[in-house]
Design a binder for these strands. Structure first.
Lengths: 147, 147
DNA sequence: GACTATGTCGATATATATGGTCTACAATAA
DNA sequence: TTATTGTAGACCATATATATCGACATAGTC
């Protein structure tokens, strides 16, 4: 039940872009440095986010990537969906046909509830929420140093 | 974010035992057949459940396995914990020391919420609940055939 | 138009996890 | 003592995760 690095790095990359884009795109190289992710690996993680329209890219000098839509409209459930595939813990929850006993299986009902619980959390959080939380945390952090 | 066959098969095996033990243990071979799991593979899945005390084994002729405690006391969160390890989607949720930025990381807060949501579901369901649900389903199923 | 900065894409490599088989062995009931 | 059952652990094939590298496409700048 682990999230792979794709989901983790990808979410962090999106948040990085959201925090640092001021009318100009953010370079992959810079994100990689700031988030301590290998540049080449980051490219592979960015690709599906571009394809899904969550990010936009600009090639050439002074290029980079920027958000594909406003951070209020980027919901975490979609991010995870794009990077990890369906959030379901077990295939049969999405498609009963993969198992002949699906219609009478009570463990399937449990996995369905688990999926709903996870989806509920991820659907309730947008990138904008993360941006605000991050700013709050950094403010608190800098205050702490003065104590 | 997928559950491996260990978690799935193990849960089904436990339910199978709960449904079929009547004062006598259930043979691994029989569970394997009924649940369509390879016997040898099932042995590997049973082992940690025995070690955790969720199952008890009896060797020799007419041996088999039986529940290690009453089904009302077997909570699914423990089953999954034993079979899959911690339910956390990301290591840093359980142990902040694995990442130096854990204290200021907002994505970590998200994964923490996700873990809580999953745990909430799994902690609320016991093996006894599954037994009852299964019996209800089968009753409904047999009724359906008469319509 | 040449040059440079930057993202894109595909091939490849390595490590780890998954899912499973097989054999030898230990315990116990009949 | 023998047949029956679970136990333990070595072994293996495949898939997936986690990268790395190099060649290429595109877009600014001079």
């Amino acid at each position: 039940m682990k999230l792979s690095t794709k989901g983790r790095y990808g979410t962090r990359a999106l948040l990085d872009v959201a925090l640092h884009q001021d009318n100009s795109p953010v370079q992959l190289k810079v994100i990689a440095q700031r988030q301590q992710i290998s540049l080449h690996y980051l490219e592979h993680i960015i690709a599906p986010l571009l394809a899904a329209g969550l990010l936009r890219s600009t090639r050439g000098a002074y290029g980079g990537i920027s958000l594909g839509k406003p951070p209020q409209e980027i919901v975490l459930s979609e991010v995870i969906q794009v990077l990890e595939g369906s959030i379901t813990p077990v295939e049969c929850v999405d498609d009963p046909n993969v198992c002949s006993r699906a219609h009478i299986c009570v463990t399937r009902d449990v996995w369905t509830d688990v999926k709903k619980a996870m989806a509920g959390v991820l659907e309730s959080i947008t990138l904008q929420d993360l941006v605000e939380r991050q700013k709050d945390k950094q403010k608190l952090e800098s205050t702490m140093y003065y104590i």
